[in-house]
């Protein structure tokens, strides 16, 4: 099926949800509201005429000051049996930065959503295990937001000092795995002299 036909079908089925249909280089993106996203994607997944069963990609985009609604969660869907694709772009406003999780439809969405939460700070309601994944726990901020500076704003990760201390401590083990306190070692050398 042609992507524009799929977009038309979505518009017919969810007339109040579709905001806009965009086409670029033959690829069609349907911008929708986030309210009934799970219902919509489940219908796209299960409908025998569509069968969009492969969640190729899920990611978030930060349109800071470029659009009225700041975030978008983008679902790139593909149908392996019918060989057509469509892109669903759900708008997520900054003041209500949450969207329903689609892990009930695709098991593979689990890590996609965790990544999106980690790097963009979008909360997925109903996700079984929403934790940071690429960054360490205790990291401040979400790096892929446009207002996050490239160098991290000079701030250090809170666990940094701890890691440095630990590596220093481990380096003091000698060949036999014995811990040597550097101060005491210095004292021994003094005594020999």
């Amino acid at each position: 099926m042609e992507p524009l036909e799929i977009a038309q079908k979505i518009r017919e089925r969810f007339p109040d949800q579709v905001i806009q249909v965009e086409e670029h280089r033959g690829q069609v993106g349907v911008i929708v509201k986030k309210d009934r996203i799970v219902e919509m994607l489940r219908w796209l997944h299960d409908d025998p005429a569509l069968q969009l069963n492969h969640l190729a990609d899920l990611c978030g985009v930060d349109y800071l000051a470029k659009k009225d609604v700041r975030f978008e969660v983008v679902y790139n869907l593909y149908s392996i049996p019918l060989r057509h694709r469509i892109r669903i772009r759900a708008e997520v406003p900054e003041d209500d930065c949450r969207i329903d999780s689609v892990t009930s439809i695709w098991m593979g969405a689990n890590w996609h959503e965790r990544e999106c939460y980690d790097l963009l700070g979008i909360t997925f309601d109903g996700h079984p295990d929403l934790r940071r994944i690429l960054l360490p726990e205790g990291w401040e901020g979400h790096p892929l937001r446009k207002d996050y500076p490239l160098d991290g704003g000079g701030k250090r990760w809170s666990g940094y000092e701890e890691v440095v201390e630990k590596s220093k401590r481990l380096r003091q083990h000698d060949f036999y795995g014995m811990y040597q306190d550097p101060t005491k070692k210095a004292g021994l050398e003094d005594a020999r002299e």
């Binding site: 965009e22 670029h24 280089r25 690829q27 993106g29 190729a56 892109r87």
Partner: peptide
């Protein structure tokens, strides 16, 4: 130009 693509 403005736009978005997903290419695999």
């Amino acid at each position: 130009i403005k736009g978005d693509v997903y290419v695999a």
